[in-house]
Design a binder for these strands. Structure first.
Lengths: 227, 227
DNA sequence: CCGCATCCTCATGGATACTG
DNA sequence: CAGTATCCATGAGGATGCGG
């Protein structure tokens, strides 16, 4: 009846950086929680809502583990608790961005029945557009849901700023499948624009400032084709 | 008795690159199998031996999944099957290297009771030394176990070549904890050299070519300190 | 031998109800 | 709002068997 002693925690037991990284953040939901916290701190119920489907006991357990491993820290916000990444935890941005870039072929099938949060674009777009240079300087405001950001492409490369001051004349409102499909290279810029213009009943509206429109389309096309 | 229909595969169901990447390679052992195949194809039993602790049925299942997802492909070798990465599967090198870099703080505790395979250095060392430039050109042969590689640091950055032609006068034979501890910044170069020289009974021998020794130590120190 | 498949046990994940 | 508690389904670990 007394079998061999069981390992208390299921570690790979390998002296390898990858194995130890996965020992720490390899459990289910862990990296998705980190992704959720990359744009900024979140409350427990915000995390629970964004990670649709996570069991509440699992979310609590994962947050406890991540806190014990110094990846996440609890902060006392007004009227509640707020979860934020430590500097080391925020260092997971690079691996996460690398996984997002690698996964581009998995995104061209479109959204399907999957859930979507505009917040995810704040991590995905900078990753997908990294190391891309465009000839003319382009600045687009992107609004998906109630999430505002500015996509800027210039000689120094592309950058995405979250929650910028609004530029109403250059706001691109698009459904997530159009934006991410475009970002993944699934659609040409023209197709994406067409989709945006065709589905007006879904509150999809494209209003790039006219004098910049061709520049924006060309820059986006060249940027996205090189992904 | 008829409950809600269960999902056949446990997908996150999120339209997000990270979530879809983890749907594909997030299951336990998957990324470690990819790491094992990064330096080159491996046989089933080689994988089973390196990944000490994996259940044989799990390895078979994971290889089937990875093959179905076009990450791994089976090749008919002489007298058996050989598993190799597809080009897309090899693209996981970047996320894996990013995780290895992120995990450096987890490596400074040393090897402990963990297992070790020299093959892992072939992925870890280039990752840890990326984006580092050294002033003088340095070339070191590193032998751990029966695994030979050349670490070269010059103006174009560091590079590691596996199984090179041997340079006996610059071979550094060191225990894995010394090499990886050094790579993780746990030890200064001098300490690592001392360890190497002190533990001769463990077949630990450091014989950097004398005229290059100071250059090598300085280059390694500056390279490793900037990690 | 190599490359798995089967069987069994236990740890982990998932859904829901409940509580300070 | 921010979690615990509980129960059950599923997946991992380990031993063994088995055909080529």
């Amino acid at each position: 009846m007394d079998k061999v002693k069981r390992m208390p925690n299921r570690s790979y037991g390998q002296f390898c950086g990858l194995a130890r990284a996965l020992d720490t953040v390899g459990d289910r939901w862990n990296l998705l929680i980190v992704r959720e916290l990359l744009p900024g701190p979140q409350r427990y119920n915000e995390l629970k809502a964004s990670l649709s489907g996570i069991a509440t006991n699992l979310l609590a357990a994962r947050l406890r583990d991540l806190e014990a491993n110094r990846i996440v820290e609890r902060r006392l916000a007004d009227a509640g608790v707020s979860y934020a990444l430590t500097p080391w935890g925020a260092g997971l941005r690079e691996p996460i961005e690398a996984l997002i870039n690698w996964s581009a072929p998995l995104m061209i099938t479109g959204r399907g029945d999957d859930s979507f949060q505009p917040r995810w674009l704040a991590t995905a777009l900078p990753a997908l557009l990294r190391d891309v240079t465009a000839d003319p300087t382009v600045e687009l405001g992107i609004q998906v849901g109630d999430f505002l950001m500015t996509l800027r492409i210039d000689q120094t490369g592309p950058s995405v700023v979250i929650q910028p001051e609004q530029h109403p004349e250059t706001i691109l409102m698009a459904p997530p499948e159009a934006v991410l499909g475009l970002a993944a290279g699934a659609l040409t810029t023209d197709q994406a624009l067409t989709i945006g213009e065709m589905q007006g009943d879904r509150e999809v509206l494209l209003t790039v400032f006219p004098s910049r429109r061709s520049n924006a389309a060309a820059a986006l096309a060249s940027a996205l084709n090189s992904i």
